[in-house]
Amino acid sequence: MARAQELLACLIARLIADARHVAVGAASPIPATACELLRAQGRPLRITRLHKRHGNPFSEGSRELFDLAGQGRIDYFFLGGAQLDGDANINLVRAAGRRFPGSFGSAFMYFTCRTILLREEHSPRVLVPRVEFVSAPGWSPPDVVRRGGPVALVTGKALFRWQPEKRRFRLESVHPGHTAAEVREATGFEYDAGTVGETAPPTAPELELLRGPVAVAIGSDYPEFARRVWS
């Protein structure tokens, strides 16, 4: 029986399976797990892990990640947000009188990399009709040069696909143990929903890799996470 974090990691791994180079930010154990799973499956994937205490991949300092993304060398990035809305706008600054750390590199990375939005908490507090502050816009008018943008939104309840031609999310699947009606009630924005499937759980081979070499690889950078999921 897969744990919730294992399901999310497997799902993300399938979404980014064509990647050659992925950047994973700080405080991103689930995306990091997805990347290590792809590696363990034998895919030649370069993973640039930011804020690693060891194995810093850069020689040019903290600007290098952005230069790399600006050169088009990063296939996928991951973003969350205090608030996300139906236009795939991301808010990392303020909401309801509360101040959050800030936008980090989101206003640039969202433009230069295909982006998986990940938010474990799926609630009307997070998925709002309209964000209070746009740290990074979900889409741009046609004259704005933009190579990247949202591909999918993964939450603890569901998978949404971003539809760029419609500028709207489509509910693709609901995770085991959750329902489409529950998702509708927990989501503060409008989205399309045709035939909604159930998110495929991790396969036995995927679980074996996750609980073996992947757990070891993740344990060094995310010891708390590894302990919570795999011990």
């Binding site: 952005f66 600006g70 590199g105 206003a107 640039f108 990074a136 741009s140 704005v144 040069v145 933009r146």
Partner: peptide, 27 residues
């Protein structure tokens, strides 16, 4: 946003009044 800080300092480093940066529009 992070690269805007680097860019603003790199402009001074180069002795120019401004430098361009992709992305960010609409934020």
């Amino acid at each position: 946003t992070c690269p805007a800080v680097h860019t603003a300092l790199q402009a001074t480093e180069k002795g120019v009044p401004y430098m361009p940066l992709r992305g960010v529009l609409g934020s």
